Simulated scan of single mutants.
Amino acid sequence: MTYRLHFPPDVFDTYKQLPELARRDLALVLVDAQEDPLAASEPYGQDDGIIRTVAQGHVTAVVLVGRDTRTLTVLAIAYAGPS
């Protein structure tokens, strides 16, 4: 079952400010994570199966996996590439 993707408004603003290639990379990795969040992500610190990281290219996001609500919430985005 596919998870519903949720961006809080401030995190979505960060997403909109990314360069086009970074936005594409993040979108692709998040689409993959919606199908199977645990398989498409890595633990964020201690592996609790709830807070995870996804990354592709120069962009990384921290996501919250809501198993009961089937929601994948993007908590933070980091970009370490060229402007």
Score class of each variant (00 low, 15 high):
residue 19 P to K: 06
residue 34 Q to P: 03
residue 40 A to F: 08
residue 10 D to Y: 13
residue 33 A to C: 08
residue 10 D to T: 15
residue 15 Y to A: 05
residue 18 L to A: 10
residue 19 P to H: 12
residue 60 T to R: 14
residue 48 D to S: 05
residue 15 Y to R: 06
residue 27 A to C: 05
residue 43 P to T: 05
residue 60 T to P: 03
residue 58 H to A: 10
residue 19 P to D: 09
residue 11 V to F: 03
residue 60 T to Q: 15
residue 32 D to N: 11
residue 13 D to T: 13
residue 57 G to T: 13
residue 10 D to G: 07
residue 38 L to T: 02
residue 29 V to N: 00
residue 43 P to L: 11
residue 15 Y to K: 07
residue 40 A to Q: 09
residue 19 P to A: 10
residue 51 I to Y: 05
residue 51 I to V: 08
residue 30 L to I: 02
residue 39 A to Y: 10
residue 27 A to P: 03
residue 32 D to Q: 12
residue 45 G to C: 09
residue 23 R to I: 06
residue 56 Q to E: 15
residue 44 Y to P: 01
residue 15 Y to P: 02
residue 47 D to N: 15
residue 16 K to H: 14
residue 33 A to I: 05
residue 13 D to H: 10
residue 30 L to H: 01
residue 43 P to Q: 11
residue 58 H to G: 07
residue 15 Y to G: 02
residue 54 V to Q: 01
residue 46 Q to L: 13
residue 59 V to E: 00
residue 52 R to M: 04
residue 57 G to N: 08
residue 59 V to C: 05
residue 49 G to S: 09
residue 34 Q to R: 15
residue 32 D to L: 08
residue 49 G to D: 10
residue 29 V to A: 05
residue 10 D to C: 08
residue 51 I to G: 01
residue 31 V to M: 14
residue 50 I to Y: 02
residue 31 V to R: 12
residue 12 F to V: 11
residue 32 D to H: 09
residue 53 T to A: 05
residue 41 S to L: 03
residue 48 D to C: 06
residue 19 P to E: 06
residue 19 P to G: 10
residue 18 L to D: 10
residue 31 V to T: 11
residue 48 D to Y: 11
residue 57 G to V: 09
residue 44 Y to M: 12
residue 37 P to C: 08
residue 21 L to A: 15
residue 60 T to G: 04
residue 18 L to V: 15
residue 34 Q to T: 00
residue 29 V to K: 04
residue 19 P to W: 05
residue 42 E to Q: 08
